[in-house]
Design a protein around this nucleic acid. Sequence first.
DNA 1: TTAATTTTGAACTCACGAGTACAACGAGCG
DNA 2: CGCTCGTTGTACTCGTGAGTTCAAAATTAA
Lengths: 213, 213
Amino acid sequence: MVVTGTTRRVDKHRAILDAALDVFARQGYADTNLDEVAEVAGVAKPTIYNHFGDKAGLFAAVVETSSQDANARVADVIAATSTNPEDLRAELETLARSLVHCLQGGAGSATMRLQLVEGARFPELISRVRDGNRDRTLDLLAGKLAQLAATGHLRLRDPGRAARQLMALVSDEPLVNSGFGARPVDPAVVDRAVTEGVDTFLAAFAPEPAPES
Amino acid sequence: MVVTGTTRRVDKHRAILDAALDVFARQGYADTNLDEVAEVAGVAKPTIYNHFGDKAGLFAAVVETSSQDANARVADVIAATSTNPEDLRAELETLARSLVHCLQGGAGSATMRLQLVEGARFPELISRVRDGNRDRTLDLLAGKLAQLAATGHLRLRDPGRAARQLMALVSDEPLVNSGFGARPVDPAVVDRAVTEGVDTFLAAFAPEPAPES
DNA sequence: TTAATTTTGAACTCACGAGTACAACGAGCG
DNA sequence: CGCTCGTTGTACTCGTGAGTTCAAAATTAA
């Protein structure tokens, strides 16, 4: 077995990032002390300083890394959506449910909470990362919706607007219900928001009147 | 001129609450020190302790008071909406714009930010106040929408759902654009979200096909 | 195997802010 | 006017956490 030269160092680097994401998201930047991050990561505190410089440096790295990860997950979900589905409603519900879980459940929840809560403390970093994430997500989603329009499944004049509104309809209620990330997302709430949100979306944007509305 | 016995004390009490709302909202609970609140309020620090006990007590009072104020403003806006408007679209746009400004602009912005950011630190207080506010707002709005349905302007099977979705459509974009309260709300963004959101709402819930969609 | 690099545990310094104390002053009331 | 209560400016204590130090140990590289 061949172990590459920096494998172990990468392990610790990643372990610190993972631990920090968890602790920062739960407690916020101010209430997070690096003794605790070190303990969760299984390293010594000076090791964190060796890798990341200082607390703010660690935070910035966590935000960047976790947001890139979230981006990749979202892109996968949108790419996996068919542009010629047999059941459009079901396809959109699956897409929407997956998006909400990517953004608000599991690792996405921690990422979202950092972006949401610490915008005042790190305005440039958070704006750049969060707005970049959102723009990218909406672009990809708008692209997919435009394809659905091209194949006659939807009637859109502005795919960007449709993307924004679909996101709003399906994500607002779960977000509020979770206390903006302070509580775990309730899958039942997501399901309801998705079902109702897609229903309203189709009532507004489907070519023919939606069967239910 | 007759001055009531506790006028001065009420003045200071209110001055402390106002100052604290401003500072807590800008800096967050952890980064707010009571020396600064005292300076902004124009009182001595021990006076804050005399009135509110400790920092957490002050914060709780600020959350309660500002949320009640926000509640009253929202109730006024909804009550002022006609249930038999000549121009439904314009009436809904006015309602929606006022709601968003109540919730996300001026004093509403500070209130919202406290509720949004400090949910993890004070879970019971924030959940109670924020969920109570939201439930009340949605109830009032659902009531108004139900009345619009009763007069034939809308076609609803579930006014509660319609209220949730109207709120989502008109408030999501301004909220994200303001960095969840970290930046001032941009009126142009609100206008666009309101116009487009009401348009989609009417496309889904108006009795006859909306003229634009 | 040796040398170089990284990590460690433990202890430390220093700045900061919550909360307190207190004598003196100010405001309000009878 | 005297009394009571609230407020003040100033100084203080104490706990906490960011960041640093260092000799020894562990890991990695040659």
